[in-house]
Design a protein around this nucleic acid. Structure first.
Lengths: 191, 191
DNA sequence: CAAGGTGGAGAACGATCGTTCTCTACGTGC
DNA sequence: GCACGTAGAGAACGATCGTTCTCCACCTTG
């Protein structure tokens, strides 16, 4: 018997996911070998395969953990802003994120690009993240006084900013999106 | 001597690039083996490696060929529209593209997601494509009577539409972008 | 101490992949 | 006919990778 105490197990899972996330995000999934994840996390291969059945399972757990953290960070930041400025706050947060060291685009878009054609579970995970993100943008849009009908366009601006910022290495794409969003609001104000 | 006649060589290169493009686009670069490209193109491995030094070189040629064709198709379509409707025409063209069988997102965004962290030549190729695409959007914006300052926002809408359409499988994202673009124009008119 | 379960280090396995090589056949120029 | 360069088919090579296995040290419980 003598099962490992759950807290110790959780700490190992956490270290493992953190190391795998950093490696996957920086270089892609297929470019990172399990042995590198072992070296980065300090968890032996044997233990890794006790915690996750396959590399693919590990990847899904990494995506889920990142989704939780990423959206918590975003929502915490945005919810501190007054209602009317919440959409602006989203783009301010993106602007900060684009400037963070090691920024390399959207982990879900990247993973979708790499494995979207072959791994159905990855596709579902990416879709779930985008659904949740867009739902939050829509909520913020309503709180900021946008008509609901404009929310999808704000999502486009956000996704476009993420893509362009990572490909061009240009954080200011967030400000372009922010200004366009403001234009969309003042226009729809008149109705 | 007896070198292969250039026309024959060109035909082989063309078949090779077409087969590689279809496979890479559908399933990703790393998921496709060189032997599959051989089977798909009917060109022997030996000949493939005479035409391209490495798989990476082949990929770059595929991206370049696709860039030329993709932008030619877009520009041909858009330039048929009256000046004032060229931006709308861009989104109409995207809408058609999103509905084409086998649509799987932007080949450059996908490749960037897969190899952007490890292959500098790929990054450069993707950046070049996006630069050219955004330059065309800017030209169309000016022709359509948008102030130049709004053009970057139109690029965001286009990129966002491509990303969302591929992840959600929702071609209508192009229409969302088209409407938002129209709003941006009517709003910026007042300045 | 004894027994047994647990985990670490790393070798081993089996598969796959990019790339090259071998062998053979064919067409061309002298 | 003969030498030569070329190409096709596919085996072979060397590396890498995901996954499992071996061996041993350690800890716990009685």
């Amino acid at each position: 018997m003598a099962e490992v105490a759950p807290p110790a197990r959780d700490a190992q899972v956490s270290r493992l996911l953190a190391a795998a996330e950093a490696l996957f995000y920086a270089r892609g999934v297929q470019a990172v070998g399990m042995d590198e994840i072992r070296a980065g996390s300090g968890i032996s291969l044997k233990r890794i395969y006790q915690l996750f059945r396959t590399k693919s399972d590990l990847l899904l757990a990494v995506l889920e953990r990142r989704d939780t953290r990423w959206r918590e960070d975003l929502e915490t930041f945005v919810d501190r802003a007054p209602d009317a400025e919440r959409v602006s706050a989203i783009f301010d947060w993106l602007h900060d994120w684009f400037q963070a060291p090691g920024f390399h685009g959207c982990a879900w878009i990247n993973t979708f690009g790499e494995l979207g054609g072959t791994d159905a579970a990855v596709v579902e995970s990416v879709q779930a993240h985008k659904r949740a993100f867009h739902a939050f943008v829509t909520r913020a849009a309503v709180e900021s006084g946008y008509p609901t009908a404009v929310a999808p366009a704000l999502c486009l601006l956000a996704e476009g900013a993420i893509v362009n910022a990572s490909i061009n290495g240009d954080p200011a794409q967030a400000l372009v999106a922010k200004e366009a969003a403001a234009l969309l609001r003042s226009r729809s104000d008149r109705h």
